[in-house]
Structures are given as C-alpha cells and as structure tokens.
C-alpha cells in the first residue's frame, strides 16, 4: 500500500492503494468513471485513452505509481469543457460515432491532437488517431469529424 495523490478531473485525490494497479482499473472501479473502456488491455486499441498532463495516454498501460502528482482528465472531466462541446458537435454532425465503444477514446485523441496542432492536415489527423482503433467506421467519417472540429473550433486551441 502506498499513498498516491493526483489531480483527477480538476480535483485533488489521495488513494492508499497498490501502486502496481493500472490507472484504468482505478478510474473504473474506485471512481466509477466508466467512460474509459478496456478494449485490449495492452496499449493497442486506445479505448482507455485519458489525458495525462493534457496529453493522450493509454490508461491500461499506466501503472498508478506513475500518476503520483500528475494531472488526469477522463472523458467525464473533459465533457465539462468548451473544447468538448465543439468536438462533440462535430462528431455528431459528421457521423463519427457508431457503436460508441471507441468514441470516448477518439474524443480524447482529438483533444490531444488539436491541443498541439490546432489546424491539422489530413495526414496529421490520421497520425493523431493512429493509436485508436475503430472497427465500425473505417475512420472516414471520424477523420471528417476531426476536420470539422478544427474548423468550427478555430481559435479555441
């Protein structure tokens, strides 16, 4: 048991727990933040994506020890922001959502991308999404969703 402190969705949290636990399990079990999903459990599919210090990471591959003192934002926290509203509307408008299981991860990936590249070209969008697998859409309309978000949210990032 180790004391781990971190900021989660803007709130300081302290846990006394096994630092070898995966961040994903802690989010889903201890905080009931089930928007982050487990698709593969080995950092391949991106369904578990969260923002760590504003950048996308696979929470299934992050031991809790590595989160001590860091800033974590999950889809639940991110959904309170202006940036989220823009990304949400663009995914809805462009048709970027089908089964929805990869979607929170895709939203996080989009935010992490636009945060560093507010006006990405097609290639940069594909790179930005390249760690997030989707089996429903063939990515075509997800890429269009991200493009639309960058356009509609121009100036926000």
């Amino acid at each position: 048991m180790t004391e781990i402190k971190f900021k989660l969705n803007g709130k300081e949290q302290t846990l006394n727990t096994d630092p070898n636990r995966r961040l994903l399990d802690v989010l889903r079990e201890d905080f009931k933040l089930t928007g982050s999903k487990e698709g593969c459990g080995e950092g391949e599919c991106g369904a578990c994506s969260v923002l760590l210090n504003k950048q996308i990471v696979n929470s299934c591959s992050v031991p809790l020890a590595n989160v001590d003192g860091q800033d974590i934002v999950t889809i639940e926290g991110f959904s309170k922001t202006k940036e989220y509203q823009v990304i949400k509307d663009s995914f809805a408008t462009a048709g970027g959502v089908q089964c929805g299981f990869c979607t929170p991860g895709m939203i996080i990936a989009t935010q992490s991308l636009l945060n560093t590249k507010p006006r990405p070209n097609d290639y940069e969008i594909k790179i930005g999404l390249s760690g997030n697998l989707c089996r429903c859409t063939g990515y075509n309309l997800i890429i269009k969703s991200v493009k639309l978000a960058a356009k509609d949210g121009d100036g926000l990032w």
Partner: peptide, 12 residues
Amino acid sequence: IHEMAGPGIRHT
C-alpha cells in the same frame, strides 16, 4: 519515433 508508436504510447 514518429513511426514506431501511436501518440498514447509516445507520451508514456
């Protein structure tokens, strides 16, 4: 590095 891993892994 650009080709070896997706963004999530590169940040970790």
